[in-house]
Each structure stands twice: as C-alpha cells, then as structure tokens.
C-alpha cells in the first residue's frame, strides 16, 4: 500500500497506531482515522511511540469513538452517508452510554461527534424531572429547600402542567 498521506512528515511514515483503553484493551487504528481526533493528532505529531494510552476512557466507549473515527476517515463514503451514520450512531443509545461518550469525545477533541452526542443528550433531557437529571448525572442537590423553591417560583411557567417524565 502506497502512502499518499500528506498530513505531515510523521503521519506519512506510519499507517496505524495502537490505542489502549484504561482497562488495557488495545485497538489498532489507522492513522488517518486517529488524526480526526485533535488530541490524538497532536500526540502523534510530538511522539514517536505508536502506542497511545488513554487513562480515562474505557474500552466500550473507546470502541465506539474508534468506530466513528474509522467511518469518517473512509474516503469511499459520501458526506450524506456519514451524516446518516452520525444520526444512527447516537440513536438508541442509553443515556448512561452517551455520558461517557461525550466525555471521551471532549477529551479526544472529536468536535463533531461531541456536538452530536451533546445534542442527543439534550434531546433525551427534554421534559425530564429535575430529580431524573440529578440521578442520571449523579449530582447532589446543594440547594436549600428555600432556594430551590425560589428558582421554581421565579419561572413558574417552566414547571407548568405539561407532563414531565421520570424515566
């Protein structure tokens, strides 16, 4: 295979990298896919080593991100196909999965996917009870009951009679 990559002197030399998740699983990724992540690209520019250890991304999340990167690095796919891939990529995923995915895409600076996931999370959060959000994000309520009541009173219309969901 002839390398026609012109992304830089370093990237031209090597074709794939190994990315290791925090639980020790290793993924072989083509360099053209890896450099779609701004963070990985910068590491590769500075580093001779072909092994990148991501100490805060678990194997399942990393596998998803790599699937995304590989699809988007595939020149044989049209932009329309990639767009529909993006939509399918986030649809049907559990909120819990998306949480780690958004964190991982932010860490790896995969801006486009980060945005798509964030949007999907926001879609799921619509019409949800505050208690649901606290539970899903594992957040302790640090308001005093008075302070929280005041927030609800200020914009009472946002807590109108429309049904709010708790699951």
């Amino acid at each position: 295979m002839v390398t026609t990559d012109e992304k830089g002197p370093l990237t031209a030399k090597k074709k794939s990298v190994i990315i290791r998740s925090c639980d020790g699983d290793e993924f072989l990724v083509s360099e053209s896919a890896a450099v779609l992540s701004t963070s990985l690209k910068k590491i590769l520019e500075e580093k001779e080593d072909r092994l990148i250890h991501l100490s805060d991304i678990d194997n399942k999340t990393l596998a998803m991100v790599i699937a995304y990167l590989s699809t988007h690095a595939d020149d044989g796919l049209s932009d329309d196909l990639k767009r529909s891939f993006d939509q399918e990529f986030v649809s049907g995923k559990e909120f819990d999965v998306l949480k780690y995915l958004v964190l991982a895409t932010d860490t790896l600076q995969v801006t486009c996917l980060c945005y798509t996931v964030a949007k999907k999370m926001a879609d799921i959060m619509k019409n949800k009870l505050v208690e649901w959000v606290r539970r899903e994000f594992d957040i302790q309520n640090d308001y005093t009951p008075e302070a929280e009541a005041e927030i609800r009173r200020l914009d009472a219309w946002a807590w109108d009679d429309r049904q709010l969901e708790d699951d």
Partner: peptide
C-alpha cells in the same frame, strides 16, 4: 462512583436545551 462532566461539555449540552428545559436544569444544583 463519581461522574462529572467538564464545564465546557455541560455547557454544550445545556446550550442545546430550549428555555423551558434550561430553566428546569438550573434547579439541579448551584
């Protein structure tokens, strides 16, 4: 087990909410 999103990521998510959901999100915590 702790899960915490960086401020920028949380801001990105919350910026996608409409005003009604945004206001209710503000009741989650300080």
């Amino acid at each position: 087990v702790e899960f915490e999103l960086p401020t920028e990521v949380l801001a990105l998510i919350l910026s996608q909410l409409n005003m009604r959901d945004n206001i209710r999100a503000s009741a989650v915590c300080r």
